[in-house]
Design a protein around this nucleic acid. Sequence first.
DNA 1: ATGCCGGGTCCTACCCGA
Length: 256
Amino acid sequence: MKLATWNVNSIRQRAEQVARWVKRAAPDILLLQELKCEAAAFPETLFAELGYRAEIVGQKAYNGVAVLSRLPFETRARALPGLPPHDTQARYVEIEAAGVVVGGIYAPNGNSGGDDGFAYKLAWLDALAVHAAHLLAADTPLILAGDFNICPTDADLAPGALAPEDALVRPESRAGFRRLLWLGLTDALRALHPTERLFTFWDYQASAFDADRGLRIDHVLLSPTLAERLVAASVERAERAAPHPSDHAPVVVTLD
DNA sequence: ATGCCGGGTCCTACCCGA
């Protein structure tokens, strides 16, 4: 199984690039984040023509996640279980394909909205950990992948790229990420590239990409039996170098 | 340390991203 995740920063702006990449890379499953549109505006037929069925959790202007799969799948959830019902932010979609539960993640950034905004980020991560714990307790083969908006360690950002009080590196955010690892999930990129300088996001400003001043905030987490099958994990930097790119590059994982 | 970039929308000044 080849699985990829990509924060596209507007699927309407990125449709042609994503379709070209899908054609070339041929992932079995592609998780998308920051669609920035409602489901009706998602370019569904473009991907149907390439053999992919979509599950779209859209939202006007902000957020928005989707799964594209060329494997048959069933949808299990269109919101993160455990969040209050009045929370309508489109940040989670969960499917089951080939016996594997796949959760597509767009975790809150946590820098806007002051204390409430950061508290929302932590509450969201807490709900994610509780949900993951339930699935893992039942030995469910599980992949949680997407934009977690967390640099797990100081090795996961260019020196000085963020202030110490930034929500992406705050100790509470990093503890939220470690909690997922303590549940038994494996960070696929770091498992195969323990010391490499690896980023998945580069700011549009100040030539951040050319200077390789990036962040590693997009992650693929694998449950134990799937981690045993991990054979490759990479960042598709060429997509960040393309004309009019997203500020994120795809992360791709291959399981035997 | 930042909103210089780039997306969105109440169409245009402002919000949000990381």
